[in-house]
Design a protein around this nucleic acid. Structure first.
Lengths: 143, 143
DNA sequence: CATATGTCAGAGATACTGAGATAT
DNA sequence: CATATCTCAGTAGCTCTGACATAT
């Protein structure tokens, strides 16, 4: 649907390409999560808990790149859905220890399946080798 | 500054990598443009005008991926700065023809220089060949 | 006292929706 | 009448700042 040609000074810049691709991706992921009644942050939180076990809100946020201020709402929703439990840390009463429930573990798999499908859609134009290359390059940029 | 390990289910997903890289890039570009007293959209508009000549707001927006509703403010600022002129299109009185001034052309070069430098910073971890590869892959995803 | 955590209110920028005015 | 452009108000989601209470 590209009716008009994109200015050369834009389409040659990685920052512009990244922004456009990321915007499209973000919309797809958002739609998928909304359809599942979830939030992208919540998948990240569930994934962190499944891999590293119970942690404080701050710890989870640092792992996933979620601001401390935004963890509260996300955790509150997950608690209401029965996907995680929030309990004071006996070893440090400032902290809440967040832990994954059985339902939360199922939820994680469910969301992961949906999100994995979205990856296929996003990268449909690339071969398997190229997808790996893209992941590698992005990972190195981020490191 | 990655204190905590990122969950595998996140760091292996292109959507997550794209989001993180794009967020960092977006911040760098934003800071650079703010320092120059400009907006990222405005660079795009100036680039379109320099390459394709005077056009309507809708046309420019479609080229650059800027919503029609957001063009108005951007153009207004560019007019106030003397970088573009806005005049009714004699051939179609619904349209404003936006055209680049001499100052706008200088401004474009100035912003392009700054933005080109940011690209170097973003892609510092990649070789020239890898940068080209990344651009190619992102371009194909977008096509 | 200094620091860490969680909670909460709100700001700022981005991208979009919807509606109205004008012109084709 | 249907459509296109421009303008403008306002919404929604994301990210971040600042403040405060509590605990270490």
């Amino acid at each position: 649907m590209q009716v008009h040609e994109v200015p050369t000074r834009l389409r040659g810049k990685p920052s512009w390409l990244l922004n456009r691709v990321s915007a499209r991706t973000h919309r797809l992921i958002g739609d998928t999560m909304t359809a599942a009644g979830a939030h992208a942050y919540q998948f990240a939180i569930l994934a962190a808990l499944a891999e590293f076990g119970p942690e404080s809100q701050v710890q989870i946020g640092q792992r996933c790149g979620i601001d401390q201020s935004d963890m509260h709402t996300m955790i509150k929703e997950l608690v209401a859905q029965g996907h995680v439990a929030r309990a004071p840390d006996p070893a440090d009463h400032r902290r809440n220890l967040i832990s994954l429930s059985t339902a939360g573990r199922r939820r994680l798999e469910e969301l992961d399946t949906a999100l994995t499908q979205v990856q296929q859609d996003i990268l449909a134009a690339l071969s398997a080798t190229e997808r790996d290359k893209l992941i590698e390059l992005l990972t190195r940029i981020l490191a």
